[in-house]
Amino acid sequence: MIRTSLLALALGSTALPVLAEEVNIYSHRQPELIQPLIDAFTAETGIDVNIAFVDKGMVERLQAEGDRSPADLVLTVDIARLMQVVDAGVTQPVQSEVLEANIPAEFRDPDDRWFGLTTRARIVYASKERVADGEVTTYEDLASDKWKGRICTRSGTNDYNVALLGAVIAHDGLEKAKTWVEGLKANLAKKPDGGDRDQVKSIWAGECDISLGNTYYMGQMVNDPEQKEWADSVRIVFPTFEAGGTHMNVSGVAMTKSAPNKEAALKLMEFLSSDEAQHIYAETNHEFPVKPGVERSELVASWGEFTPDTLNLMEVAAQRADALKLMEEVDFDG
């Protein structure tokens, strides 16, 4: 059972129910995206879960609430957002043999302050009609003149694009990264706007030939009657860095410093890393499981194999400030 405290959030209340054997979550993810997981957890354990969707100001809210915060867990997407919560000092480390066994070291904090639950790749959606097989190669190549007027993307200051630029900085250095983002901007077919699915719509409409996007949006589009035609007009291509693989990011969880229901919250964390939950993630959210051995969904597997980049996500997060500064310096959205 999910009880989503949107009303309390709208009123600025911190009065989420704090009862025995329940877990309170502040989530950047829409509650409906994780509802199947929570339903399975409650059915297995009898522990109820309350979710407050906090789109903005999560760190500020947790800081203001301090030890009185009713939140046990934070669920969020993007490594930078995870690190923002951790760096603000509003979380606590969690020691768990289950989490260590289920989640590879590259997808969790070495100090046990956050744990990845799923991964997603930042890929290229390419027109089936206007982009030849093999034409998309590396991320660096997206700045070449051959893509002049052919690229669409959402805002450069969006978390996913900032993370990608952070990875470019980590791989190629700040100077080359600035040249790259300037070249990428020069190749845009139109001003950045909308989300990743909007860019696919633009490809379908003939406004551009390729766009940057996250893999799971394809799963969302093919299951939407209005958007399936957009999805059918493109294919997923996995570019790589010249000295690496395909850029990856995570969704993840951290336990708050206050955590009034710490034992129940740990049970939920461990459940989310289990075979059952990882399978649900794969089937319903079209994401890549972090637990080795859990198969991708049939749809996700149909997108093909690729080589994930081995760059440590902590290194990507460390470049966030420089990446955001570069986006602003080149006026990427202008």
Rank of each mutant, 00 (worst) to 15 (best):
residue 65 E to S: 10
residue 24 N to W: 06
residue 242 E to P: 05
residue 227 Q to C: 11
residue 184 L to H: 06
residue 266 L to K: 06
residue 330 V to Y: 01
residue 141 D to W: 06
residue 170 A to C: 07
residue 115 F to I: 09
residue 117 L to G: 02
residue 82 L to R: 04
residue 217 Y to T: 12
residue 287 E to N: 10
residue 198 D to E: 15
residue 99 L to Y: 00
residue 142 L to C: 09
residue 190 K to A: 15
residue 66 G to R: 08
residue 221 M to I: 05
residue 41 F to L: 05
residue 280 I to S: 00
residue 90 V to I: 13
residue 333 D to M: 02
residue 35 Q to M: 11
residue 236 I to P: 07
residue 126 A to D: 05
residue 76 T to H: 02
residue 2 I to C: 08
residue 98 V to T: 14
residue 190 K to D: 13
residue 88 A to S: 13
residue 207 E to V: 08
residue 185 K to G: 00
residue 328 E to A: 08
residue 231 A to I: 02
residue 43 A to L: 09
residue 18 V to M: 04
residue 64 A to Y: 05
residue 279 H to P: 13
residue 287 E to C: 12
residue 45 T to S: 05
residue 285 N to R: 11
residue 137 T to N: 11
residue 40 A to S: 11
residue 109 D to W: 03
residue 198 D to Y: 10
residue 123 I to Q: 05
residue 263 E to H: 05
residue 179 T to Q: 11
residue 6 L to C: 11
residue 132 A to L: 10
residue 86 V to T: 09
residue 164 L to Q: 12
residue 23 V to D: 00
residue 244 G to P: 15
residue 198 D to R: 07
residue 202 S to H: 04
residue 325 K to I: 01
residue 329 E to Y: 00
residue 202 S to E: 15
residue 173 G to I: 01
residue 160 Y to V: 12
residue 120 R to E: 15
residue 116 G to I: 03
residue 240 T to Y: 07
residue 47 I to F: 00
residue 319 Q to C: 14
residue 17 P to C: 12
residue 231 A to H: 04
residue 128 K to R: 15
residue 78 D to R: 13
